[in-house]
Nucleic acid binder design. Structure first.
Lengths: 219, 219
DNA sequence: TGAAACTTTGCAGAAACTGCAAGCTGCTGG
DNA sequence: CCAGCAGCTTGCAGTTTCTGCAAAGTTTCA
C-alpha cells in the first residue's frame, strides 16, 4: 500500500502479486486448499513456480493476504484523533476508511473470506497474521495514551479489538450482503465499550442507556 | 485429558505423546524452530519419524498442544453454573480448575509459552487452535443463554474471552513468576466486564491496588 | 548506448507430510 | 494358557512445500 512507485517495474510487480493472489483464491475456491499446488497457482498466474516464492513465503500467505498488517495510514489517523476521544471510539473512527475500502471491494473480500471459511486450516494463518497486527495495535494504543506498550490495558484492548474486527468480518461475509460491514463493526465496538457482562440477546435495549460517554464525540 | 483408559496400551500412548511434546519443546527451546527437524524430535523421544506423524499432523502441533481444546469438563462446569450468574463470571468460575492445572504445571507451561514467544510463527498455530476453541465456546455460551450460536453476543464474547485468556497467559509467562496466573486472568475478565472504554493508564486505581486475588472461591 | 540494479527462472536439495503394507504388542475369549 | 484379533509402530516410496544459488532477462538511469 505505501508503494507509490509508479515505475513500470513496480507496477509489474503489483500486477504479478495480484495475479497470484487471485489465481490462488479462485483455484482454492473451486477445488479446496489441498487440491491445489503452488505449481498450478503459478501456472495460472503465468509465472514460474519459483517466482511464487519470491512473493509469498507460503501457499497460505497468498490466500490470506495482508489484511490489516501495515495499515500505517490507519495508525496515523488513530494517533491524530483528539485525545479526549476514548480509545475504542478513536479506533473505530480511524479505521473507518480502511473498512470502507474493504466494503468497496466487496466481491473480492467475500471470495477471500469464503475461502477462509471453507478451509478452516487457513484460519490458522489469518489469526497468525492478526498476531502481528496486535503487536502494532497495542503499541499504537499505548503511545496514544502515554502508557507502556506491555500494559494490561494496551495488550487486552488490542487483542479484543482484533478479535472483534475478525468476528465482524466473518459475520459480514456470512450474511446476505444487505447489511454493510460498518453495521457489524459498530455492533462489535459497542459490545466492547459497554462491557460483555450483560447480554441483551433479545436485541432490546440498554446499550446506550447509562453509559456516561462523557463526550458527544465525533471527529 | 478425558482418557481414563488405564490399560497398558493407552498408558503407553500417553507416554509417547508426552515424550514427543517434551522433546520437541526442549529442542526448539535450545535451537529455534527451524533448526530442529521432525526426525530429531522423534529420535529424542525414542520413536521412529513416521510415528511422530501418527500423533501430530504437523511439527508445530506437538509444540502448541491442545491448550484448551476439548476442555469438556470445563464446558460442563460452565453449563452447571447457576443461570443468574453473568456469562463472564460463570466462565471465570468454570475455567478456574483448568487454570489451576496450568498453574500446577508451571514449569512445563512456562517452557511452552516461552517457546511460543520466541518463535512468532508458532503464534499462528496457537491462534489457529484458538479458533477451534472459539467455536465450542460460542456454542456453550449460546446454549447457556438460550440464544443462537451465531448471535453477535455469543460470537463476540467467545472471541473476546479467548483473546483475553491468551493475553493473560502470555503476560503470566513474561512475568517473574511471583504473580499467579489467576491474578492475570481476573484482571483480564474485569477489563472485559467493565468495558474497555475507560483506561486507567496512570495505574491509579482499582486494578492493581488490592487485587488480592480473590480466588478464595471454589467452583 | 551501456552499465547498474532488479526480477525471473531453472536446478538441486532439504524437509514436511501421506499412503501402504508388513511387523510387533497388548488384549480377549475359549 | 494360548490362539487370534485389534491397534500401534515402522520402513519405504512418493508428493509437495520451501530455500539457496547462479544464470539469464528486463528495467532504469546516466
Amino acid at each position: 500500500m505505501p508503494e507509490n512507485k509508479t515505475g513500470r517495474r513496480d507496477l509489474k510487480k503489483q500486477r504479478t502479486r495480484g495475479a497470484l493472489t487471485v489465481a490462488a483464491l479462485r483455484l482454492v475456491d473451486e477445488r479446496g486448499l489441498d487440491q491445489v499446488t503452488v505449481d498450478e497457482i503459478a501456472e495460472a498466474a503465468g509465472v514460474s513456480p519459483r517466482t511464487f516464492f519470491n512473493y509469498f513465503a507460503t501457499k497460505c500467505e497468498a490466500l490470506v493476504g495482508d489484511l490489516f498488517v501495515d495499515d500505517s495510514a490507519g495508525r496515523e489517523r488513530f494517533l491524530a484523533v483528539e485525545r479526549s476521544v476514548p480509545t475504542l471510539d478513536a479506533l473505530l473512527i480511524a479505521l473507518t476508511p480502511t473498512f470502507d475500502a474493504i466494503q468497496a471491494e466487496r466481491d473480492f473480500w467475500l471470495l477471500r473470506l469464503r475461502v477462509l471459511g471453507d478451509n478452516p486450516s487457513l484460519l490458522t494463518d489469518l489469526l497468525g497474521r492478526s498476531a502481528a497486527t496486535e503487536q502494532t495495535l497495542a503499541a499504537a494504543i499505548a503511545e496514544r495514551l502515554g502508557i507502556a506498550a506491555d500494559s494490561a490495558y494496551a495488550l487486552h484492548t488490542a487483542a479484543a479489538v482484533e478479535a472483534a474486527i475478525r468476528v465482524a468480518l466473518m459475520r459480514w461475509a456470512a450474511g446476505d450482503g444487505t447489511r454493510p460491514l460498518s453495521a457489524f463493526l459498530h455492533e462489535a465496538f459497542t459490545l466492547l465499550t459497554t462491557g460483555l457482562a450483560h447480554p441483551y440477546p433479545c436485541g432490546s435495549l440498554a446499550f446506550d442507556l447509562d453509559f456516561p460517554v462523557a463526550d458527544k464525540e465525533e471527529a
